[in-house]
Design a protein around this nucleic acid. Structure first.
Lengths: 206, 206
DNA sequence: CGTCGCTTTGACCAACTGGTCAAATCAGAT
DNA sequence: ATCTGATTTGACCAGTTGGTCAAAGCGACG
């Protein structure tokens, strides 16, 4: 869509270095708070050189977002209608929590974008994201109808998985401030807690 | 702390108008993306006039944050050690969800600040916030020890309440994009879902 | 009415911003 | 070695930004 794929090794290297640096800078400062110079510096390039690879600050930001959206939704795509319902959903929760641990900058980038009204990905939200969620919500409904899962609102269930897992990436400063030295790594505790929540929530009462 | 309390009616009016406008602008654009001119315009003042009331953009932002922190933590303060445990916690969830519905800008402001590393309120997080959370976590532990609540990690329980309720404020664009016309107001459904989650989660098995 | 202090403003500034451009440098193919 | 196109850069620009300042306006009170 936006990229005639890099031809040379140098282009490959510099484009990825720029996107990597931009992820750092944008996730820490938001779009408005970031400057092209910062990104260029973090990528080890001069500003004009950076703008040789991307037409504008906007272009970098868009490339980042749209390049990341797929990765971001992969865990949900992997939920398998043929699998054991509770296992599938717990695995989804685990994958999302791993993403919060391993890709916090990506999580924050999306969070900032959506909080500020998703001006640049609003279409994708009500397009492909919505379609994917609806599809998986239908799977969950069918599991419930078959008595293999406790009855819950599938959309709000998905929202709760997103919010609880991404919380550990987006709000990590707060989480660590509250836990302090007691729990230097919040993720093991988070995993146990989340498994407990969703097991209790979803195990059919029969 | 930062405000010699406004003396005249005009000061009262203009200072609150500025903070109100700043809440709009900052929650929509972040600190870096907001301009003093925008805030002044939204408050119906000229830029120099605004800077007559607040020394700098930073000063407005700080005044906003610290003025809001108390309000933000009130619902947690109200959790009553003497009350019926499940009722208390469900009431807390309900109050937090109401705040997401009624004060979304405040929620977004805090979210943006914390996501970006809480450079200006980090101290309060590991200070008063942490103390309050620890206090209430101890209450929850005592409820659990008395068998009046199912055993859960109280800190992660609190995190999950924060994340799930604030999600409906911070990510409202995404929530509405996903739900579409099916559920034009997400809050009733959210309330039912959250009550279900925490009831199942916290009701002691006995 | 006059005046004194609070309030408001237009004009201004230095720093920074995103972005341009022509010229210089470099890497690889011949 | 030379040529060609890809890459890099310093100098530059116009617009915007946060913030200043001296002067003007205004309201309450004697």
């Amino acid at each position: 869509m936006n990229d005639a794929r890099p031809v040379t090794r140098i282009q490959q290297k510099n484009r990825t270095a720029i996107l990597e640096a931009a992820l750092d800078v944008f996730s820490l400062n938001g779009f408005g708070g970031a400057t092209v110079d910062q990104i260029a510096g973090a990528a080890g390039l001069s500003k004009p050189n950076l703008l040789y690879y991307f037409a504008s600050k906007e272009a970098i930001y868009s490339a980042l977002l749209s390049g990341l959206l797929d990765t971001w939704l992969d865990p949900l795509r992997e939920v398998d209608p043929e699998g054991e319902p509770l296992e599938e959903l717990l695995a989804y929760v685990r994958r999302k929590l791993e993403m919060s641990r391993d890709l916090p900058r990506e999580s924050k980038l999306f969070a900032i974008e959506i909080i500020q009204g998703a001006p640049r990905i609003g279409d994708e939200l009500s397009g492909s994201l919505r379609a994917l969620v609806d599809e998986k919500a239908a799977v969950i409904e069918s599991w419930i109808a078959a008595g293999r899962l406790a009855p819950v609102n599938p959309h709000h269930l998905i929202f709760s998985i997103w919010s609880m897992t991404q919380h550990y990436a987006d709000f990590d400063v707060q989480v660590r401030a509250v836990l302090g030295a007691r729990e230097p790594d919040p993720f093991p505790g988070a995993e146990r807690y989340l498994e407990q929540v969703f097991t209790k929530m979803l195990t059919p009462s029969a």
